[in-house]
């Protein structure tokens, strides 16, 4: 796995000035190509900060992030070019409310990849069809349910043909009955071989879909391994008490 790491972090630290919070205290992690890594942990453990550092939405205070062998924390690196290869899905969807679904999905491919409108729309329609929303292409985000919004957010990111998808608690803002439809889309994506890093509280998803589970607490990786190892034979006391509360 270490020979084919898509993302590698070395000694990643993040310090928030306001409140003087040490969110990350040195994270060394690897995401392999085609691997589905699920990050779990209590609130405030730094798991979202870790994910947001991977595409530099948060600028780490110390450490390096190697993406495809390139240190993207280097100020000379064009971070926008690398972000185009890293799709991101947010807890609160963050769809563009002033555009139709098709507009949401084709904006970046047309403006950044210089695709023709026809081509971009054709690909977007195919993706919409895959998530069962092709008939809503002309609708605006405000007309959708939460689960539909999140499915659109996923395919919007996919329109850029990313090499990795980052999910930041994608189901936490959803009504319970809509969680399944979003997890289904993510599961299909994983089966197709997409590299994924998923921060989530959905332990069922972590166990079923994850290749590897990382348990974080207080800005550190406490334990990691296969879902079986993490969920069935946790080693650390911290993980055991966490699982006792959430399972």
């Amino acid at each position: 796995m270490s020979t084919d790491a898509l993302i590698r972090t070395e000694g990643l630290k993040k310090h928030f000035k306001g409140g003087d919070i040490q969110a990350l205290r040195g994270i060394d992690a690897e995401i392999g190509r085609g691997e589905v890594v699920v990050v779990i942990g209590p609130s405030g453990s730094g798991k979202s900060t870790f994910l947001r550092c991977l595409n530099l939405l948060e600028m780490p205070t110390a450490g390096r992030i190697l993406f495809d062998g390139v240190d993207i924390t280097d100020p000379k690196v064009d971070i926008d070019a690398h972000r185009r290869k890293m799709g991101m899905v947010f807890q609160h969807f963050n769809l563009f409310p002033h555009m139709t679904l098709l507009g949401n999905m084709t904006l970046a491919p047309i403006k950044l990849l210089h695709e023709s409108r026809e081509n971009a729309e054709k690909r977007a329609m195919a993706l919409l069809d895959r998530v069962g929303l092709a008939d809503r292409a002309g609708a605006y985000p405000s007309q959708l349910s939460g689960g539909q919004k999140q499915r659109i957010a996923i395919v919007r990111a996919l329109c850029m043909n990313p090499e990795v998808m980052l999910f930041d608690e994608p189901t936490s803002a959803l009504d319970p009955e809509m969680v399944g439809e979003v997890l289904d889309v993510m599961k299909r994506l994983a089966e197709e071989g997409m590299t994924m890093v998923v921060v989530t509280h959905e332990m069922g998803f972590a166990r079923e879909v994850g290749d590897r589970v990382i348990f974080m607490d207080e800005g550190r990786i406490v334990e990691q391994g296969t879902p079986e190892k993490i969920f069935d034979s946790p080693e650390s006391e911290r993980l055991r008490s966490f699982l006792a509360k959430v399972l």
Binding site: D80, R84, N94, L95, L107, A108, A157
Partner: peptide, 24 residues
């Protein structure tokens, strides 16, 4: 979050402003 969505797709600061923030 709108800003983060724009940046995460790979738009630079000015393009995010132009296509996503200013219209709203």
């Amino acid at each position: 979050g709108q800003f983060e969505a724009g940046r995460s797709l790979g738009f630079n600061y000015v393009a995010t402003m132009r296509y996503i923030i200013i219209p709203q």
